[in-house]
Design a protein around this nucleic acid. Structure first.
Lengths: 337, 337
DNA sequence: CGTACTTTTGCAGTCGCTTGCAGAATTATT
DNA sequence: AATAATTCTGCAAGCGACTGCAAAAGTACG
């Protein structure tokens, strides 16, 4: 109810002075400021006042775009970003795009124009065209979980990390290694599946292991599809002794399917995941852990920095991953391999 | 860059007409509208234009407040709400309050004033005082996961659902039933722990079962603390044959601890959870499923309805829960009980 | 006490869009 | 064709803050 005017009147000054006093800029007499603060207090007017988009030209809020906000990974990143943003006084506008139909509207900036001061895009590789649109908005854009030369980003090295994960299996004596990867035709065109697959292949190649295509199945990064895919894989002849899953959730699905088929993990089959999902510990899943929450925070800081000085060059940040060895993988004795 | 003015000029009409045309109100000649649309298109001006808070008096965005946005339950509710809001053209502002310090500022509406048209509060029971503040904002407030006479809400019947869950254990012949509940001194003062505990106690009483206090341990709704708490419980004499966990995540922790202690679920101990967590299926956990996503959607619709007609009475909605029986609970033979 | 600075403050214009009102253009009626 | 009824459209006044400019008030100094 109470606006800047009411406060001004209450304090016996002009609205302009109230605006200045509350923002701390310019010169305002200490006594006057005190009066104004008292008045604001009395009228329950926020000390950090309602910013006004039209006057300010900015909204003080930052958009976060993600394809599935309720999946663990995204929720974590968002959480990290939220914390950093809130701390710095920004609001966070959430844009979810599990439905493809939204994407178009989003990237054609119908939705974003003028509503946010910057954009954090999580794991959703825009096409070059969409990129043009986004950059045309004239606001900084920051990517999480992927890179692009035209804007800042925070990510891990998916290729190297996958290679390390796969190498772990090799080190444990596995030679017949299966791959649970993302669907090559995923609608969002995520880059993660390709990258992790690439790292996997590299590790195989480096160790002189032959790649057998029938050892690969696809899922969409959910437990459910992974579980089905695993059924499929296990039904095939010449079963692998270990499986690299491109995400922990898929690894969970794989483990479940394995159990359903009467296989023990890791006795009968080793499974390694990727992400460092909260439940990995519970499931005793060996996994490649990525600093999810931190990625959100870094993206937030980085983009706020760019809001401050828009001229700054975009820069990409690569955060380290950690192999966490648990008991879903085991060493194969030479005669088992 | 392009504003309504530019579009107006391009189309050879006044800004006012553009505004009207793009909003679809009032009468605008079809031909004129076409010209305007063409101009907008050409200049890349959003068809759904940037609403202007000062002129409109509203922001077209709705705040969602939750204590832990990255926990499964909250992420699901938020997801549901986001979908409904987006569909209706609202933006969603996310407020996370894992840190208590934020709470104060939030409810003293320093943060919210003028930034949102309505507020959805998830599982965070405000004190009466905070309630006053919120309602003073003059915007509709809707609660998820709890009720309050002074505003609309969407929730399940925690008491009845817990009673049903517990009854399930009783029906399976369990007499020594343990309880994994939320900490009574939880900082947010959640109502859920009390309610679920109450339902549990009711079931016991109705079946003439004695309540043994040493069969209760507390967690904070995370797997981790639950796991520790379970260690504690299992170390005590006269171990229960079944345990009701107030959340699935706690149930996961309990299952993990049980396994660690060499106990098989459900052979040695039955465990039932609450929530219908995505991973419950994977863990074969019997649980009381609540329609999480739906709750978010309903809250969103309900609050948008109240934005439309602010005079409407607040109403509370109770959604049904479903007992999903899996294999973490088993029937006890009479001589085991 | 008058002059020259500084600091403080208010006026009025602005931001980008909405909207009441009334005049203009179009269509209908007689 | 003149008048009335409708439908469009533009003008201008907001909305609620921010801010450049200049006047007002306060200080310093001679």
């Amino acid at each position: 109810m109470a606006g800047i005017k009411e406060v001004a009147e209450e304090a016996g000054v002009s609205a302009a002075t109230v605006s200045r006093a509350l923002r701390g800029f310019h010169h305002v007499n200490a006594a006057t400021r005190a009066k104004i603060l008292a008045a604001a207090e009395k009228l329950d007017y926020p000390i950090a006042p309602i910013q006004n988009k039209s006057a300010l030209g900015r909204t003080n809020s930052i958009g976060v775009v993600a394809p599935y906000i309720s999946r663990w990974y995204f929720a974590q990143v968002i959480n990290g970003a939220e914390q950093a943003l809130r701390e710095a006084g920004f609001d966070l506008l959430l844009y979810n795009f599990s439905q493809m139909k939204g994407r178009e509207r989003l990237f054609q900036h119908q939705l974003l124009k003028g509503r946010v001061d910057a954009l954090i895009v999580i794991s959703l590789p825009p096409t070059e065209e969409e990129f043009d649109s986004m950059l045309n908005l004239g606001i900084p854009v920051s990517l999480v979980g992927m890179h692009h030369k035209r804007c800042s980003s925070v990510a891990i090295d998916d290729v190297a990390s996958s290679r390390t994960a796969t190498q772990h299996l090799v080190n444990q004596g596995h030679k017949k290694i299966g791959l649970m990867s993302g669907r090559p035709d995923n609608p969002f065109n995520f880059s993660v599946p390709q990258d992790r697959r690439k790292g996997f292949m590299q590790a195989l190649a480096e160790n002189g292991l032959e790649w057998v295509p029938s050892r690969e199945v696809h899922g969409d990064f959910t437990m459910h599809t992974a579980s089905r895919a695993m059924d499929d894989l296990l039904a095939r002849p010449n079963r692998p002794t270990a499986i690299f899953c491109e995400s922990d959730e898929m690894a969970f699905g794989a483990m479940q399917a394995a159990r359903r088929h009467g296989l023990k993990v890791p006795d009968d089959i080793s499974i390694i995941g990727f992400d460092g999902h909260e439940m990995a510990e519970y499931s005793d899943l060996t996994t490649m852990e990525q600093p999810v929450q931190l990625m959100g925070e870094m993206a937030a800081w980085s983009i706020m920095e760019r809001i401050r000085k828009p001229s700054a060059e975009p820069h990409s940040l690569v955060l380290p991953t950690t192999l966490v060895v648990r008991n879903s993988t085991r060493r194969l004795s030479p005669n088992e391999a």
